[in-house]
Simulated scan of single mutants.
Amino acid sequence: MTSRTALFITDLQTELLTSPETRIPHADRILTASTEILTTARSIIDAHRDTNRLSPSLIVFVQHEENPTTGGTMIKGIEPWELHFAPRESVEEEIVVGKNMDDPFKSNRGLAQKLRSAGVTDIVVLGAQSEKGVEATCTGALAAGFRVTLLAGAHSTYDRDGEGKMAVDIEREVERRLSTRGARVVGWEKAVRGWVERQRVG
Rank of each mutant, 00 (worst) to 15 (best):
K132N: 12
G145R: 01
K106M: 09
H64E: 04
E66A: 09
P68K: 09
W81L: 09
L58V: 06
E135C: 05
K106P: 00
E94V: 03
E131M: 06
I123C: 09
R172H: 11
I59V: 02
S117E: 15
I123Y: 04
E135I: 01
A143F: 03
V168H: 14
S107G: 15
G72V: 12
P56C: 08
E171W: 02
T69Y: 07
V148T: 03
T69E: 14
L151A: 04
A86I: 14
G77L: 04
S55D: 07
E65M: 15
M101P: 01
K165M: 15
V125D: 03
A143Q: 10
A143H: 05
R116W: 13
V62P: 06
V168K: 13
M101S: 05
G119D: 13
H84A: 06
P104K: 13
I59L: 00
A86L: 09
F146Q: 08
A86P: 06
R147N: 04
T137R: 06
E171K: 10
S55A: 09
G77I: 03
E93A: 03
T139M: 00
I59S: 00
T139L: 01
N108W: 02
A141I: 01
K165E: 14
E79M: 08
A143Y: 03
L150P: 02
I170C: 06
N67I: 03
N100L: 08
Q113P: 12
K165C: 13
G71R: 01
P87V: 08
E171M: 08
I123H: 07
L83S: 12
V125Q: 07
I75T: 13
S57I: 01
G98N: 15
A112T: 11
S55L: 07
L54N: 15
G133L: 01
V60I: 08
R88H: 12
E92N: 13
S57T: 13
S156W: 01
G127P: 07
E131T: 06
L58K: 11
D159M: 08
D103H: 03
V125T: 10
T149D: 05
E66M: 10
E92W: 14
Q63G: 10
R147K: 10
F85K: 13
P56Q: 09
V134W: 02
A152R: 15
S130F: 01
S107I: 08
E82K: 15
A154C: 04
T69N: 10
M74D: 01
K106D: 08
Q113G: 14
A143R: 13
G153R: 05
A128Y: 09
A118Q: 13
A86C: 11
D161L: 03
G98L: 15
E92T: 15
G164E: 06
E131I: 04
E66V: 07
S90N: 12
K76I: 14
D102I: 02
T69V: 05
G140H: 01
I123S: 06
E163A: 15
G110L: 00
A143C: 04
E79N: 13
T70M: 00
P104W: 13
V60K: 01
F105K: 14
K132E: 07
